[in-house]
Design a protein around this nucleic acid. Structure first.
Length: 227
DNA sequence: GAGCTGATGGTCT
DNA sequence: GACCATCAGCTCG
């Protein structure tokens, strides 16, 4: 079975814009078990986080209103919001609610269900050569998309994909996959978020090995320590 | 395995 | 100029 057929087999039909035209905290648990497809790589989501709109959610990029950076979050639902963080990582979100709302769901982790080789090379590009197969194999399958930055790399998403419409038959789509029964969905505080940590808007599949390890927010202290 | 740390640059106040 | 929705690589046990 080729990768295209494999994706069709596990992913099912693409989700329409109506799916995303709902509050992010409603869309988020419904995204678990869904399959994000970009080219030959498909990732089944196991962990997501919901972020609210201006003035509602201090953890959200849109909390202080619209800026050039977060403009995509105020656009149509079903679009991709890709941003750069920590000076070296990209994270991907799916925009929710009607245009102007400013809410989205962060894709935190998932399982690579198709295009494993491609995802592995993206994670370790220097291992794509003769004799380097052993090095590439050092990344366990379950770690390929375990964490928001790793998931973004595995799917091949970059800054240029910011604003991409995932509901118009383009190269990036979200497919129906196999939704997760509510009994298997766990909720808790969001990871690494300093503000709004009391809002239990992190959703993950109970017992799934690809869920990223929880880390509470640790305040950074930089520039003051003697080195 | 857990725990720590350095790397790195865009964004916003 | 402080803050980040992070990760890889290293120690230690």
């Amino acid at each position: 079975m080729g990768e295209r057929e494999l994706i069709d087999d596990v992913a099912g039909e693409p989700l329409g814009r109506d799916f995303f035209d709902r509050p992010s905290e409603v869309v988020a648990p419904d995204l678990l078990g869904r399959v994000v497809v970009h080219g030959s790589v498909a990732v089944r989501l196991s962990e997501v986080e919901a972020y609210g709109g201006p003035g509602q959610d201090p953890a959200s990029h849109t909390y202080r209103g619209r800026t050039p950076r977060n403009a995509v979050m105020f656009g149509e639902p079903g679009h991709l919001y890709v941003y750069f963080t920590y000076g070296m990582h990209y994270c991907a979100n799916l925009v929710c609610m009607p245009a102007g709302t400013g809410s989205a769901v962060l894709l935190r982790a998932g399982e690579v269900v198709a295009g494993v080789h491609t995802a592995r090379i993206r994670r370790m590009p220097h291992a794509d050569g003769p004799g380097m197969e052993g090095l590439a194999r050092r990344v366990p399958d379950r770690d390929l998309a375990r964490g928001p930055a790793r998931l973004t790399v595995a799917l091949g998403l970059v800054r240029e994909h910011n604003g991409t419409d995932c509901c118009s038959g383009g190269p990036i789509q979200v497919h129906e996959g196999r939704p997760v029964p509510p009994a298997q969905v766990r909720t808790g505080p969001r990871t690494g978020v300093s503000a709004g940590a009391d809002t239990p808007w992190r959703f993950w599949i109970d017992g799934d090995p690809t869920v990223s390890p929880y880390r509470a927010h640790v305040p950074r202290h930089r520039g003051r320590t003697a080195r």
